[in-house]
Amino acid sequence: MASNNGRKASEIFQGQLLLYRHMYAHVDSMFLKCIVELGIPNIIHNHGQPITLPKLVSILQVPPNKVSGLQSLMRYLAHNGFFEIVTIHDNLEEKEAYALTAASELLVKGSDLCLAPIVECFLDPTFSSSWHQMKKWICEDDLTLFGISLGSHLWDFLNKSPTHNKSFNEAMASDSQMMNLALRDCNWVFEGLETIVDVGGGTGITAKIICEAFPKLKCIVLERPHVVDQNLSGCNNLKYVVGDMFKSIPKADAVLLKWILHNWNDNDCRKILENCKEAIISSKCKRGKVIVIDVVINENQDEHEVTRLKLLMNVHMACLINGKERSEEEWKKLFVEAGFQGYKISPLTGHLSLIEIYP
């Protein structure tokens, strides 16, 4: 049999492995959704110790003919780092059991750091089915996947769908909880500031974290009407304001843009940043700045898997809402064109960076 382009059989088989791995990759997300829906992370957590398969089967009331399927699922997820297979001693017997890992602990509902809502939101069929429209998105001008599948831009869809809007806000709030951990050692970012505006701050999780750490810092959450209308109440140093970041931003010493700019194209980002600059200049603070928490693609310095995630997120944002993740050069170009004089990038989480931009 002739080989493809003179390639060795071993190369061809490696190519097949790569192809098959990606062909089956969509199932990984469905497995993730499944264990969240079944509540398996919570079951193990509440069990207080690693759980055996028979005990898990009993709690879930799995039919006998599905036990082997559940075992296959658990072993696969253990292989991929969501569970750890350990040996426990039960009635003087050694038994195989499943323990939580750092990843599955993030799926325990009710915990301080829980990302289950973002899994449930992003893998909702209403949103995830959009990916079947990739060919149409590629071939037709000025369309987004959400525009094709939902009939409107994501933000317009959320305005009209209270159920999905609630799910989306809960997803963003769960991600914001991670900021408590990320910002723990970032006091230097907020020192010397008296006021800050959290643009698109959702239900205010990040703002509350900042306010608790800096009681003298006054924080404003700028959001869309249907977010603020959810009976959100402020406190002494936190308030919610309805507004449009494309029109104006309340004046403050600093403006926070967490996971905002990657939602928009360069022209829109320039407009947002120009409004941020105007808000800072109006406050007349010598230490005024914009604080961006977002992805910075750096293929030369990041580990392969980190770059893989960032590039995947880049495609995700481009297809769904015409957004993008950016390299440092792309960020710098935006900042200069918006009239800023300098910037500084610092690592924040495994895939997010903190960028301080100075007017």
Rank of each mutant, 00 (worst) to 15 (best):
residue 154 L to D: 11
residue 246 F to E: 12
residue 162 P to V: 09
residue 295 V to R: 05
residue 250 P to M: 06
residue 46 N to Y: 13
residue 80 N to D: 06
residue 139 C to T: 14
residue 240 Y to R: 08
residue 222 L to T: 14
residue 147 G to C: 04
residue 47 H to D: 14
residue 288 G to V: 09
residue 179 M to K: 06
residue 358 Y to H: 06
residue 316 H to F: 10
residue 252 A to Y: 02
residue 58 S to L: 09
residue 34 C to Y: 15
residue 257 L to G: 08
residue 92 L to S: 13
residue 137 W to C: 05
residue 83 F to P: 00
residue 45 H to V: 02
residue 12 I to A: 08
residue 163 T to N: 15
residue 27 V to W: 15
residue 220 I to S: 13
residue 323 G to F: 04
residue 94 E to I: 07
residue 314 N to Q: 03
residue 135 K to A: 14
residue 98 Y to M: 13
residue 94 E to H: 14
residue 241 V to W: 00
residue 30 M to R: 15
residue 155 W to T: 12
residue 206 T to V: 05
residue 77 L to A: 04
residue 355 I to T: 00
residue 185 D to A: 12
residue 259 W to A: 09
residue 271 K to F: 02
residue 180 N to W: 11
residue 319 C to G: 02
residue 342 G to C: 01
residue 322 N to T: 00
residue 213 A to P: 06
residue 144 T to F: 01
residue 357 I to R: 07
residue 196 I to Q: 08
residue 100 L to H: 12
residue 325 E to Q: 06
residue 160 K to R: 13
residue 130 S to W: 05
residue 326 R to W: 07
residue 119 V to I: 04
residue 216 K to C: 03
residue 165 N to K: 03
residue 255 V to L: 10
residue 92 L to V: 13
residue 190 F to H: 06
residue 157 F to A: 07
residue 226 H to T: 04
residue 50 P to G: 11
residue 244 D to L: 10
residue 291 I to W: 00
residue 175 D to K: 09
residue 86 V to G: 05
residue 83 F to C: 11
residue 128 S to T: 02
residue 269 C to Q: 09
residue 41 P to H: 04
residue 186 C to E: 12
residue 343 Y to P: 11
residue 136 K to N: 14
residue 168 F to W: 06
residue 327 S to R: 10
